[in-house]
Structure formats: C-alpha cells, structure tokens
C-alpha cells in the first residue's frame, strides 16, 4: 500500500511528539559538544509545524487533494523560519528537496527512497559535510543506503522506512567515537569524541517517526488523533 499525504502528516506529527519527548536528551547531547540548544530548536520548529498543520486542516475543504510534497513543503518553510541555528536551514533544505520529488498523491517504495535521497542531498549540499564528519549526514547517509537496499530487495514502503530508521539509529550511535570536523562540535577537536552527535540522533527520531507513521496506517477522522 503506497503512502499518501495523510501518512506525511502523521509522520510530521509523530516527529513533533518524538522531539518533544526527546527535547531534553537532544539538548543534553548538544550541551556536551555544542551549545545546548538542539532540542529546543527542533521543538520550537516542530511545534510551529503542528500549529500550521492544524490551521491547514481547519481550512481545507473535504474534497481538496493534497500531495505528499504539499505537506513536506509546509514543513520545510516552517522549519526554515522558526528553527534557526545550523539545523534550521539543514532540515529545511532536506524537507524542501524531499518535497520537490514527492509532488504526488501516492508514493511507492522507490519513491520513498527518492525522498530520502533528496533529503540527504539537501543536507549534504547545504552543510558541505560528508560521511564521517560527525553530523546528521552520517544518519541520513546510512538511512539512504539501507533504504536503497531494502527497495532493491523488493521491500514495501514500510520495509524501506524500517530499514532506514534502524540504520539511522545505528549510525547515530556510531557517531560517538568520531571527532567532529563540521559544525560547532568541530571547535572541540578531539574533545568531541565520546559523545553522540545531536543532529544524527534527531535524524534517527525523524526516520523512526516516518516508519511508525507508515505502520500505524491511515486513520479516517481527525488527523490529530493519529499523531
């Protein structure tokens, strides 16, 4: 069963919840090797996203057709204008590029892979980071690799997202021993080793929410109750 705009909305609302729950944890990670605001930054951004989704739901006529890309574009512009910091433009660009390749009502497994590839490409090109620099790129890249493999093996949308989420989670943990060479943590030099990168962790949360939203399936009534 292909994924639609409602899935995208569930994904985003679940991300908002996951970020709210993990806010202090993300902030603590950022406090160790950054400036202690990553949790607060993302939380501010995703709360704004939820508010705009609510507004949009209230305004939307029953017959209006939405694409996956419509939802992701709303996320992109909202994060861009409310998060700030490094993660604002990075996530903003990720969702913007993902929106560009998902201007469709339904997306299948290969299209899900394309969404993740576009997001990775957005982050990497904006941040000029590559794998191994202890950034969210590490999580996105692992997710894309795993998603491509799962889709190549003929996996469903859920399979692809599950592979991506698990790989991102592992990759986030994998940033612990790394020495950062991009972003604020790079100023610490060797002292950045031994701590997980907050952006990689939040990427794992984002992808975990995507998988959970696909697993939970469509809900008929108020999209808020599905969150």
């Amino acid at each position: 069963m292909a994924l639609d705009a409602d899935w995208a909305e569930r994904w985003v609302r679940r991300t908002a919840d996951a970020v709210a729950d993990a806010k202090d944890e993300l902030t603590e990670l950022d406090r160790q090797i950054g400036d202690g605001d990553h949790g607060e930054n993302l939380h501010r951004g995703f709360q704004a996203v939820v508010a705009r989704l609510d507004d949009a739901a209230a305004e939307r006529g029953t017959g209006d057709e939405r694409t996956v890309g419509d939802v992701l574009k709303l996320v992109a512009t909202t994060l861009m204008s409310t998060v700030g910091g490094a993660s604002g433009p990075l996530y903003g660009t990720a969702y913007l590029r993902a929106a560009k390749v998902s201007g469709r009502v339904q997306i299948d497994s290969p299209a899900v892979v394309a969404v993740l590839e576009a997001a990775l490409e957005g982050v990497a090109s904006r941040g000029k980071a590559t794998v191994g620099e202890k950034t969210m790129v590490d999580a996105w890249q692992a997710a894309v690799d795993a998603a491509e493999a799962a889709s190549g093996d003929g996996g469903s949308e859920v399979d692809v997202l599950q592979a991506a989420a698990e790989a991102a989670d592992k990759a986030a943990t994998g940033t612990i021993p790394m020495i950062a060479t991009k972003g604020r943590a790079s100023y610490l030099g060797e002292r950045s080793a031994g701590h997980e990168d907050p952006g990689a962790r939040s990427t794992a949360l984002v992808l975990g929410a995507a998988m959970a939203a696909a697993l939970s399936g469509p809900t008929p009534a108020d999209p808020r109750s599905a969150a």
């Binding site: 400036d35 202690g36 605001d37 607060e40 930054n41 501010r44 861009m80 204008s81 409310t82 998060v83 700030g84 910091g85 490094a86 604002g88 433009p89």
Partner: peptide, 11 residues
C-alpha cells in the same frame, strides 16, 4: 537577534 545562542532565520 535569534533565539539565545541560535542564529536568526532568513525571514
């Protein structure tokens, strides 16, 4: 001015 210790946004 952005939020505390957080760069402002393009808008």
């Amino acid at each position: 001015p952005g939020s505390v210790f957080t760069s402002p946004t393009p808008d």
